[in-house]
Write a protein that binds this DNA or RNA. Structure first.
Length: 429
DNA sequence: TCTGGGGTCCTAGGACCC
DNA sequence: TCTGGGGTCCTAGGACCC
């Protein structure tokens, strides 16, 4: 008989990832409440277990935790993505040694396809992988197992919450045996159900994951959309999403920042836009892509209700598609100039590159630029900045002031332990 | 004083064409 | 002067994720 094997998915998720990374390189943080802040040191984006226990909330603005910082010696770190990216890569490679068919879903999550391991003890393999990751990288992870991605996510929550799971939890294959755990999971804790949908689901009497699983799919589709319906189906055990083992080709590339302080002058704004354009172009070149369209946006501070609000975006075609910094800066500045209105306090701006192409780009007959020269220039520029440090060579449009009004605050950053020679940890004097 | 940044997918509605 | 349906393409906005 040729029976199809039961699909089986797992989600491996790093515990308190950024806080754990900070801890790996500074063991004195062990046992202490640690939080990691967003860019600009604005709000909390990661918390160690101790910080969670203190009641520090995700996304909480840091100025609201000042008291706790004093009382409970809360440790604060600015985010250090260079470090986290590198640690993430190490975690992924460690997992891959045990389970080869994986999809890197985010900086701290990996979906695993366990179907090829059918007949083997998947729980045991996952436990071994977990132990190895901790041993090789110092990062604790949890693994949830289920017959769909959404159920694997749910199992992962249980693996994290229930100490008896010891970091790995598998939901039963039989639907009837999943009733308990699904009934105990609030619908807002289901992957794919955000705040807005949760509120509307509650209004129609759907409160738990079980309620959603048992709701008629067509009704969910009618009341919400196909994405919500797929989530409901996955909760019943019907897979609607596969493990995507080939890396997805990106469709857009954004560089944007809130300013360290608000901006009222076009010269400051133009420097910020030129800087975003430069960094977006750099990133695009590093991935070997070209952009066929560029969009720029700027806006005021939406939290300052006492100030007049303004926000706009504009876009235009790039013909031919390009990744040349001066071209992208020129277009970005021209767009920005059109959006700019004096008299406002601006808080944020950004550059979006879209219609990305990763194949060879056809030149236009009517295009006057010397593309080979552009490419040589950009390659040289990238090489210098990679070796000598970012922005060793940079376009004049970004400005030369040491302390730029628009650049971000980062008061608590840890060293780049793994990616910068001078920051490598040393032992002894 | 102080509130992140970078993504994807889906849908509705308008423009335009036949 | 009034009136149709159907298709495609594009964009803006809304929802979600980490």
């Amino acid at each position: 008989m040729n029976r199809r094997v039961m699909p089986m998915y797992a989600l491996a998720d790093c515990n308190n990832f950024y806080a754990s990374c900070e801890r790996v390189f500074d063991p004195s943080l062990e046992g202490r409440p640690v939080v990691v802040l967003s860019n600009n040191d604005g709000c909390v984006i990661a918390r160690s277990q101790e910080a969670k226990d203190l009641g520090v909330r995700m996304g909480e603005p840091i100025f609201k935790c000042r008291q706790r910082m004093k009382n409970d010696s809360l440790v604060i770190r600015s985010s250090n993505y260079t470090l986290y990216d590198d640690m993430s890569r190490r975690v992924v490679e460690s997992i891959r040694a045990f389970i080869p068919d994986i999809e890197v879903y985010s900086i701290d999550e990996v979906f695993l396809n366990l179907e090829p391991l059918a007949g083997r003890d998947v729980d045991l393999i996952c436990r071994r992988a977990r132990r190895a990751v901790l041993q090789w990288t110092g990062i604790p992870i949890s693994i949830g197992i289920g017959t769909t991605k959404t159920l694997a996510k749910l199992a992962n929550r249980i693996a994290k919450k229930d100490p008896s799971a010891q970091g790995v939890h598998r939901l039963p294959t039989l639907e009837s045996e999943r009733i308990g755990p699904l009934a105990e999971t609030a619908v807002e804790d289901v992957w794919g159900i955000g705040r807005r949908w949760a509120k509307r689901l509650h209004e129609i009497g759907i409160r738990s994951a079980l309620d959603l699983a048992q709701a008629p799919p067509v009704e969910i589709r009618r009341g919400f959309n196909v994405v919500a319906m797929r989530t409901a189906l996955e909760l019943r055990g019907t897979p609607c999403q596969e493990v995507e083992d080939v890396e997805a080709v990106r469709k857009t590339l954004v560089r944007s920042r809130s300013f360290g302080s608000m901006i009222t002058e076009w010269t400051d704004m133009s420097e910020a836009i030129a800087s975003h354009a430069t960094r977006a172009a750099e990133k695009l070149r590093s991935e070997g892509g070209h952009a066929g369209r560029i969009s720029v946006f700027l806006r005021t501070n939406r939290f300052r209700e006492d100030l007049p609000q303004y926000g706009r975006s504009g876009s235009r075609e790039l013909q031919p598609a390009t990744n040349t910094t001066p071209v992208i800066i020129a277009q970005a500045l021209d767009l920005g100039r059109r959006l700019w209105r004096p008299g406002y306090h601006y808080k944020k701006a950004g550059v979006v590159l879209c219609e990305l192409e990763f194949d060879d780009v056809q030149g236009s007959l009517f295009d006057q630029r010397d593309h080979e020269r552009d490419t040589r220039l950009m390659t040289t520029l990238d090489r210098i900045n990679r070796r000598m440090g970012a922005e060793t060579v940079h376009p004049a449009a970004i400005g030369f002031k040491k302390r730029r009004r628009w650049s971000m605050r980062q008061s608590f950053r840890s060293p780049r332990y793994t990616t910068r020679w001078t920051d490598i940890p040393r032992t002894g004097p």
